[in-house]
Amino acid sequence: MRGKRDKHRRPPAAKGGVTRRDFLRGAGVTVSGGLLVGTQVGKAAQAPASSAVAGPGAVPVTLHVNGKVHRLQLEPRVTLLEALRNELDLTGAKKVCDRGVCGSCTVFVDRRPAYACDLLAIEAEGHQITTIEGIGSKDKLSPVMHAFVEHDAQQCGFCTPGFVMACTAFLERNPNPTLEEVEKGLGGNLCRCGTYAGIRLAVLDAAKAMKGGSHA
């Protein structure tokens, strides 16, 4: 077996004389780009000197989250979801499928919905990130959050923050949705408890509530 099945069994074959362990030891140190080009990627890639190559160790990453600036040290492989949850303690976005299918980690990148599990934190640099913590609070619910409470569109609540984010983004693109549009437009989120019946009503209701007023 290869790949994932033995990801926990066998160290990967080393290339070009660099062993996995050497590689990982190097990972602890922040090394600026050009130096690593020769060791990490064979002969062919000739990066122009101006191109910064970062990592594989931790590098400075600046994230703009909910209007605040955070300067972090992250390996390039760290996802935005991991950075939000582990470094910034913003735990509203959940790790559920961790493969860009279920929507529980939904955040906004410049107001567009994104699966934070499928986005490298370093890729989010230069963008405005909004998490559920940035659109409302338990004492100041956004219209979508309010509608979720009203229609009991949540049970265990684990998919809920992702759904609230997805619904909010959906309503920005579709301020007057039909039921059919709601059902199609929220196909990127999954719930296990079975709260869809409430969510459908909540979205339609929130659309009405958001008419004319500003929202999250």
């Binding site: 990627v41 064979g42 062919a44 890639a45 101006s50 970062a54 370093i122």
Partner: peptide, 24 residues
């Protein structure tokens, strides 16, 4: 697995950063 990351500013730079065999 860990990897190094580059976000080139031009297409030319981008091509220069790519390896010539799959997997790199």
């Amino acid at each position: 697995q860990a990897f190094e990351y580059a976000a080139p500013k031009t297409l030319h730079e981008a091509v220069g950063l790519l390896g010539s065999s799959w997997g790199e």
